[in-house]
Each structure stands twice: as structure tokens, then as C-alpha cells.
Simulated scan of single mutants.
Amino acid sequence: MGSNTDEVDDLSERHENLSPADRVVVSYPEDLSDWGRFQVEKDAFVAYLRKTKTDRVRQGDVWEEFVGVGCCGSTLDVPLRVEDIQGGETFGPETEVEWSVREACGIEGGWQVQSQGGPNEV
């Protein structure tokens, strides 16, 4: 069998071969609730992004990220989008993450308790 160049290309984009960015601007939709914004912008979630986004990061990349579980087991997944990346190609331990807000996308969650009427209430 011949070699699979797609597999080689995927492996070549792993973090150890890429320089970490100085700064990455990531956006979330404007209809994300205050509770959802708090979850996304806190230090622990930024640390999570730095540890898990080990492939090449490009402007326009979109990730659907889990940010919390409601009291009844329903989850809130938020579509995050890379708006800009400066000084490198991936997240690193020192990469500054800046948040921005983009157009609403109809994000919905399923619980009422944490967000005074639901995750869409701001």
C-alpha cells in the first residue's frame, strides 16, 4: 500500500511543530446569556482552550464548545469563532485570548435555574 499524505499532513499540523500565537481573538454570538459569557471568559475556560486547541488555528475556524451543564442535565454548547490570530499558528501557554461579540445565531440552552429564565436571557 502507498502512503497516506492526508494523514501525514494532519500530523504535521500538531502543536509541537507550530509556533504559539501571541494573541488570538475569539468571538461568541451576541445572544449568549450573561451566564454563558461568564463561563466562556473565565480563566479556566481560556486555559482549556490553550491546552486543547493544539492544531493550527486559522481565522474563521469555528468550534462548538461545551461550557456547562444545567440542573437537569441539559448542556450549553457555544459556537466560538477565531476572528484573528497574531504572531503564531496555534494556542500556547502564554497566548493572550481576547473576546469579541459577533452577530446572534439563535443559540439556545435548556435550563431555567442558572440564568433567570434561561440561557438566552441577558
Rank of each mutant, 00 (worst) to 15 (best):
E89K: 09
K51I: 00
G92N: 01
R50V: 01
T52G: 10
D43K: 14
T54D: 04
E83G: 10
G68V: 02
V78N: 10
P93T: 00
V25D: 03
C72Y: 02
N17D: 14
L32E: 07
D61S: 03
A21G: 07
G87D: 05
D43R: 13
L80E: 11
G92S: 01
D9S: 09
D34W: 11
T52S: 15
Y28A: 06
D84H: 11
G36Y: 03
G87V: 04
D84G: 04
Y48M: 07
W35I: 07
V25I: 05
E65R: 10
A21C: 06
V8C: 06
E65P: 11
L18T: 07
V24C: 02
N4F: 00
D9N: 11
P20K: 00
W35L: 08
V57C: 11
E30I: 06
P29M: 06
V67G: 13
F91G: 03
E41R: 10
L18S: 08
E13C: 11
R14K: 14
A47I: 00
L18P: 14
R50I: 01
G70Q: 04
D9R: 13
E13A: 14
S19C: 05
R50L: 01
R56W: 05
G88M: 06
G60N: 09
F66T: 06
E30W: 02
N17G: 15
R14H: 14
F66D: 10
D10A: 13
G87S: 05
C71K: 11
